[in-house]
């Protein structure tokens, strides 16, 4: 049995799978897939699922006239059908240095890198890769094409989208990397990915989003312009979310920032206000483009939060169809 095989199995936590089993990853936009699937296709009329009636206009094929309606109302209506296709999903995991922060002990059966296991801490990167693996597994089980990429100041590793049987192992191999000593640059990574993405794709970006919001905004604008759907999963450690430390000590940044003498007791409120403001800003940006933002607490399980996100998206998609 190969090491990669072992590592791949590590991500298949029965707990996570059980929590995600009832859900489907739905694309909000119309998918541009090449195979039949569960997602709405821009092509109509070829499928079997009735979509709506439309008044006949000159030039329409008489094949789609609804003769039953004509017989009852003496009016010409054309039947329209919705074609469903498969979804292309691209998962981008932030592999920058700030993702190596974690204050929780290693979780068993959730993946994680060798480095984090050595340190004995469950990092944001671990949480991101576990979430990415869960999503990828979900996609593959839906027969959607899925690919992953790990990026920082540029792409550090990527697996092209595919729905083949070997794709799972390729994805896990890619996710088994470790954070690098660099900052996360969303525009750089997105540009590289867009160059390889001709079809409409659901981009899932997993990061702590602690970098410059302006760069993220530029990346999201680019994706919107191309018509892609985006899910932003913000991975934050519980301590980052609460600053539950009573200490006066020098704090040093993971991405080369200068040390800062901080008394956490005196700045906790201000810090939490700043954090809230920051997350609200990102959420506002995401909403402006019609995208979703979900904040993940790395001390919590991946499954419930991911399930809540999927449930929310599913509801949104169903409502949109009605």
């Amino acid at each position: 049995m190969s090491t990669q095989g072992l590592r791949a199995e590590q991500y298949l936590s029965p707990e996570t799978l059980a929590q995600l089993a009832p859900f489907e990853l739905r694309a909000k936009m119309v998918a541009d897939g090449v195979m039949n699937g569960m997602h709405q296709s821009p092509l109509q009329g070829m499928a079997v699922e009735f979509a709506t009636h439309r008044q006949y206009s000159a030039g329409d094929s008489v094949r789609h006239l609804d003769w039953k309606v004509f017989g009852r109302s003496d009016k010409l209506y054309v039947k329209e059908y919705r074609q469903e296709t498969n979804l292309d999903v691209m998962i981008l995991v932030d592999g920058s240095a700030s993702m190596s922060f974690g204050t929780l002990g290693v979780k068993q059966g959730w993946g994680g890198t060798d480095a984090t296991r050595r340190r004995g801490a469950w990092t944001k990167f671990d949480h991101a890769t576990a979430s990415a693996a869960a999503l990828a597994f979900l996609c593959l089980s839906q027969r959607d094409r899925v690919g992953v990429a790990v990026g920082a100041d540029g792409l550090r590793g990527a697996v092209r989208k595919s729905a083949t049987r070997d794709q799972w192992r390729s994805i896990v191999r890619c996710l088994s990397s470790e954070p690098v000593e660099a900052s996360f640059s969303p525009p750089a990574c997105i540009n590289q990915l867009l160059a390889q993405t001709p079809h409409r794709t659901l981009f899932v970006i997993l990061s702590d989003f602690l970098g410059d919001p302006e760069g993220l905004r530029a990346a999201l604008a680019r994706l919107r312009h191309r018509g892609h759907d985006v899910m932003l999963l913000a991975m934050l450690d519980h301590r980052e979310l609460t600053l539950d430390l009573d200490i006066e000590a020098p704090f040093i940044g993971l991405e080369g920032e200068d040390a800062l003498d901080v008394d956490t007791r005196t700045i906790r409120v201000a810090y939490l206000e700043e954090l809230q403001r920051h997350l609200q800003g990102i959420d506002r940006q995401a909403r402006a483009f019609g995208y979703d933002l979900q904040v993940f607490d790395t001390h919590e399980s991946v499954g419930p939060v991911l399930a809540a996100l999927l449930s929310r998206r599913e509801g949104t998609v169903v409502r949109g169809r009605r």
Binding site: G253, I267, A270
Partner: peptide
């Protein structure tokens, strides 16, 4: 106690810096 504290690694340094600028001086 102040001297004994070891440096703490932190990811959200920018948020921390802004919070410090906002409140720490008065607290000190």
């Amino acid at each position: 106690l102040r001297r004994r504290q070891r440096p703490i690694e932190w990811a959200a340094m920018e948020l921390l810096r802004r919070a410090v600028q906002q409140s720490q001086r008065a607290r000190r």
